[in-house]
Amino acid sequence: MKKGVIFAALVLSSCNLFKGNSAPSGNNPSAEPDLVSKEYTTEMETHEILTLIHARSGMIKKTGDNTYTLTMISVSRYVTYFTEPTHKHVGRKALPQLIDNWDKIFAFQDSQDKALAVMGFSNEQGEFIGIPVQLGYPKYNSEMKELQFTVFPYDPAIPVHEGTVKSITLFIDSLNRLAVITS
């Protein structure tokens, strides 16, 4: 009996039957696909969302061994998110909705509340550069339109850029994977 219960639990978990993914199939763009907050949070918990945060500029300072502070200045009030590419769903949410749920969204990871992300920005030649990092401890000041993260390098071989950068975008993947741009 006990073995049967364990087997049933394993079957259900591997089937992902309880996955809270309610994104539309994407074949009918005329339907209103903007998700309500509960569904958004549920989708984040299923590790399937890629979230983008934009700011007009950013300041990156080294604050300790392998620790930096990123201040996003004039940060956009919205975050954009993509579901799994096969679902073809894209939407946006207010920035505080991501920040307020940060611990809930990223606490499942081994990295303990740190999100894996690519920090993308323009270099002096206007080219897009991406640096893989881990992000944690967000602090949002809505009046100043500033968002601050503690940044940890992902790979010691890829140094975190210090100083002021313009047009910064964070690509935050809630799946425990990471991307890097080599350009």
């Binding site: 890629l50 991406g130 893989p132 690509f171 993947d173 991307a179 741009i181 080599t182 350009s183």
Partner: peptide
């Protein structure tokens, strides 16, 4: 528009280019 488009793949191969 920049003549180069940057791309990256976030799973399972973490890589990118233009």
């Amino acid at each position: 528009v920049n003549s180069k488009v940057s791309y990256f793949i976030d799973r399972p191969i973490d890589t990118g280019g233009t």
